[in-house]
């Protein structure tokens, strides 16, 4: 029953959705992986982005991707604000671990409920002229609805990768992750650097939100479904490793897609999370950890 063609299509579908998963996870790789801030509210920022994109699309007819990109400065500001608050309340006092976690959990709930009160529980979705098209390469069909999010996800990963490794601020961020005292001695304020990094992480959420709503309908509590997945990818890829995040996202996407095709989609999630549990037990630094 299982043909090569089917397998090939499953792998491609997995890679496509994996690129999108990478976009959702990048923010976590930066905030949690590099800065060690347990930002479990990230998925809800993605949902927030998706709703802004929806609102702009429904009222002004703006293109989802364009809105997502235009919103990044706003989300950057949001991220900087959240980090400043977090720093003032927790990190400065050295109480970040447990209380910081709870802080973000609370934040997640607040944003979710505010969206619920504003937009209700109905699913929202957007229109874009390129959504319905499919290109065919040989026997493999690629839907634009999934191709575009994948390409944007990969692009975002590359951009972030080069920013972190080639620019002054990018290197400062990496420096903060390794040794903030040394950085301070060199006359760089680690808090400012961290705030920028956190802002950057949250900024990716507006684009990821646009991708999310391109792929399918969105409702306020959808973010919860992505908490586990996104953290799984971040850990799998090795915390703080941007390239690793992309590879792990592809792996998870393909694992889910293959399971869905071969054994039935019901088991897809268990397979990817089972893999995560194994990785945690055997190689806790992730596949590409430092």
């Amino acid at each position: 029953m299982v043909s090569v063609n089917l397998l090939l299509n499953a792998v491609v579908a997995g890679l496509l959705v994996g690129g999108f998963y990478a976009a959702v996870t990048l923010g976590i790789s930066v905030t949690f992986g590099l800065l060690e801030v347990v930002n479990i509210a990230h998925p809800v920022f993605v949902i927030l982005g998706a709703y802004f994109v929806y609102a702009a699309n429904a009222t002004l007819g703006l293109d989802p991707l364009l809105t997502g990109a235009l919103l990044t400065p706003l989300f950057f500001g949001l991220g900087v604000g959240v980090y400043r608050l977090y720093y003032a309340c927790f990190e400065r006092k050295g109480e970040e671990a447990l209380r910081g976690l709870v802080f973000f959990f609370g934040l997640l709930f607040i944003v979710e409920v505010l969206l619920l009160l504003r937009y209700g529980v109905d699913y929202r979705l957007v229109e874009a002229p390129y959504l319905g098209k499919t290109i065919t390469l040989g026997s493999v069909g690629i839907a634009y609805r999934l191709l575009i999010p994948c390409l944007v996800g990969v692009g975002l990963t590359l951009a972030l990768y080069f920013f972190l490794s080639k620019t002054y601020y990018g290197r400062a961020i990496q420096g903060v992750a390794q040794d903030s005292l040394a950085l301070r001695l060199m006359g760089v304020n680690p808090v400012t650097v961290k705030a920028i990094a956190f802002g950057l992480g949250v900024a990716t959420a507006s684009l990821a939100g646009a991708l999310l709503i391109l792929i399918g309908p969105v409702e306020p509590s959808l973010g919860r479904e992505y908490i586990g997945r996104a953290f799984a990818i971040a850990v799998l890829g090795g915390l703080g490793s941007i390239g690793g995040t992309l590879v792990a996202a592809f792996l998870l996407g393909v694992a889910e897609s293959l399971t869905a095709t071969l054994y039935g989609p019901s088991w897809a999630l268990a397979v990817s999370f089972g893999a995560l549990l194994l990785v945690l037990a055997l190689r806790p630094s992730g596949l590409f950890g430092r």
Binding site: I227, G228, F231, A232, F273, L276, L277, L280
Partner: peptide, 9 residues
């Protein structure tokens, strides 16, 4: 994170 994954599995 492991406990979160455990719940899903």
């Amino acid at each position: 994170i492991a406990t979160l994954a455990l719940a899903v599995v």
